[in-house]
Nucleic acid binder design. Structure first.
Lengths: 139, 139
DNA sequence: TTCTTATTGAAAATCATTTTCAATAATGGA
DNA sequence: TCCATTATTGAAAATGATTTTCAATAAGAA
């Protein structure tokens, strides 16, 4: 697992530092979505002396290699830890626990006892209009 | 349409002001996702003298009544204008145009010529663990 | 029209995030 | 194992986005 993360990092020329190990350990064990500041406080609370700046920088790196994913809730940016290469999230509005949802193509089944309040699906890519405009530039 | 928005606002004791009319007009016509600052600049550019503070406050109100929806892109908060009560978005990473997707239960069909780079699905609600904990408090 | 109260805008305050820079530590190679 | 290179770290400062304040204004109800 750590080996896996190490190689993920190395692929992009990132290093697996003490701070990253510690923070990843904390983040991956509490299955809750966290803001950078909450993560920092959690680290301090667990005796991991780490700077807030480093937390921000780590989240940037981890987002790049796909190990965490940010989303908006109540105007704040939360991050979820992503164990698996591709899945979706059920996020508790009350306690911010994150439940992973795996079946992406077929009908989604919500974890037992979870009640969906609302959901959000956004697809990102390149649209037809942009392609047409871009094509037009060269004609 | 405006009548509809007016009643939506009135339900929550909000008023339909000149500024809101103008900004809604601008926002709804350009089918692009915008940051608050981009919206403000677009307004000024179109001769609508409106304060940035007002733009922020409007987006808050419009989010509450479900007329706009925020999402994260490259660390910035963008808003999409939502004409219909419930749908999903295809957002162009290049030009930020927004294409609405309507079929939510069944398989999603992407608009012709659009190429999906990645997508994001989050469900929000109350999770089983939270409910159990809460229930536990009273036992 | 008049009253009440939501809304506005400018400035100030706040809060999150990024940058800077010198010191340190992780990796690769000798 | 030791060295050299370079990514990383942390504290402080800088930046940038968002919110708050408050007096003036305008929307909607009576």
């Amino acid at each position: 697992m750590i080996t896996n993360i190490r190689s993920l990092l190395h692929e992009q020329n990132y290093r697996l530092t003490q701070e990253r190990k510690a923070l990843l350990g904390l983040f991956s064990h509490a299955n809750k979505a966290r803001t950078p500041i909450q993560l920092h406080q959690a680290a301090l609370g667990a005796g991991v002396g780490i700077g807030l700046t480093t937390v921000y920088r780590m989240l940037e790196v981890l987002t790049k290699i796909g190990l965490v994913s940010p989303f908006l809730l109540d105007g704040a940016v939360y991050y979820t830890y992503c164990t698996h290469s591709h899945h979706h999230h059920f996020i508790c509005l009350d306690c911010h626990r994150v439940n992973d949802l795996f079946d992406c193509q077929q009908e989604l089944s919500t974890p037992d006892g979870c009640v969906v309040e609302y959901h959000k699906l956004d697809l990102f890519g390149t649209c037809a209009t942009f392609t047409r405009e871009r094509f037009g530039e060269f004609n």
